[in-house]
């Protein structure tokens, strides 16, 4: 980083994301009634946390000794986040449109599909 403002500009968004996602994940672990919406958003938060912490690691490691791993993690997490946001929108729509919506089955199926799609896209 050239200067302090540049450094702050680069580190503030991922730091904020890390803090917010950690708070959300802690709330999910502590909260007894885990409904589908909470699970969906927590999975998105885990993926965003991975992306943001990877961004922070790449800022703080100027030698970029782990550049291949960092790039793979970055592409995987960004594809997963965007595909998962799309899956959330689809599941919300399905839960409203379909009266016989089975949330646990759909969640597991969608999670597996999005995981493999993100792996395929980032490969």
């Amino acid at each position: 980083m050239d200067s302090l403002p540049d450094f702050l500009l680069a580190t503030t968004p991922p730091s904020l994301t890390c803090i917010a996602c950690i708070i959300l994940i802690i709330q999910y672990i502590r909260y007894p009634k885990k409904n589908l919406g909470f699970s969906l958003i927590t999975i998105l938060a885990v993926s965003d946390l991975i992306y943001a912490s990877n961004t922070l690691v790449s800022i703080f490691d100027p030698t970029q000794s782990l550049i291949k791993i960092s790039l793979a993690v970055m592409f995987f997490s960004i594809y997963f986040s965007i595909a998962w946001a799309s899956a959330i929108a689809f599941l919300v729509y399905q839960s409203l449109a379909d009266k016989n919506f089975d949330s646990k089955k759909q969640l597991t199926r969608t999670l597996i599909s999005v995981f493999f799609t993100a792996c395929l896209c980032s490969a």
Binding site: L16, L24, S81
Partner: peptide, 14 residues
């Protein structure tokens, strides 16, 4: 902008 998405999503939900 992409890295701040998680912050906004978490904040809306919280």
């Amino acid at each position: 902008l992409a890295s701040i998405s998680g912050f906004f999503s978490a904040m809306i939900f919280l």
